Simulated assay, not measured.
Amino acid sequence: MARDLPPRARFEARHRPVAAAIAATLLAAALTACAPEAVPDPSSSPTVTATTAQPSPSPTPTSPPGPTFVPDGAAADNLPLFSSVTAAVWASEGRVAGRAYVDALAAAGFDKAAMQVTDDETTVGNPAESIQFAVRWGDECLVGQVGPATGDPVTVVVPVLAEGTCLVGQTRPIDW
C-alpha cells in the first residue's frame, strides 16, 4: 500500500510519527514553562541555608579617573582637563556661548582673571562662526576654539603673544 503512494506521501507517512512526537515535546515544554511555581505548604517548616559571600578572585575593573587640575604643573599638564571641559560644554546647550566655557573652566579650577574670550555675536548681531577662549598659564596659553565653522572643538597650548595676551584682537570683558 505504501508503495502505491507518490514519494512525498511515502516520506510524510514515514515521518509523521516523529513530527508528532517532536510537536508533543515542544508543547509539553511550553506548558511547563508557563506553569505557575509551586507554592510551599504553609504547615511545613522553612529550610534555611546559610551562605557566606566569597571575595571575587580579581578586582572589578573601574573606569579610570578623568583629567585633573594640576595647579603646579605646566600648561601641557592641564591641557587634558582644558580639552575635557571644552568637549563637555560643546556637547551641552551652551555650546555657542563663550560665558559657558569661561564658567566651566573656572569651576574646573582655572583662574578666571587669566582668561580671555571672544564675542558670541558678530558686529551685526549674527551668531559668531567660531568662539575662542584662553587661559594664560605662565608664558603659555591654553587656547580653545569652537563653533559651526570649526567643527569639533580644538584645544592647544601656544606661547603667550608679544602683547602678553593669548588671543589676537578684541576680546570681551569677563565681568561676571
Rank of each mutant, 00 (worst) to 15 (best):
L31P: 09
G147N: 11
V48A: 13
T47Y: 12
A23G: 15
P71D: 03
S58V: 11
P67A: 01
V102I: 15
S45A: 15
T155A: 09
A29Q: 14
D111W: 06
M1P: 12
V85A: 00
P6V: 12
G144S: 02
S63W: 00
G94S: 05
L167K: 05
E93V: 07
E93H: 08
G169I: 07
P7Q: 10
G109D: 03
C166M: 07
V70N: 01
R95S: 11
L27F: 14
L167N: 05
A100F: 07
L142D: 01
A162I: 07
A9N: 13
A38I: 08
G125C: 10
V48W: 13
T165P: 05
P127A: 03
N78Y: 00
T118N: 04
D4S: 13
E163C: 05
F69C: 00
A29G: 15
A21D: 06
A97G: 08
D111A: 15
R10L: 14
A30D: 06
P153T: 11
H15P: 12
T122R: 08
A19M: 10
T32G: 14
D120S: 07
L167V: 13
V154F: 04
A76S: 05
F110L: 03
P65A: 04
D152T: 13
A38S: 11
T47K: 13
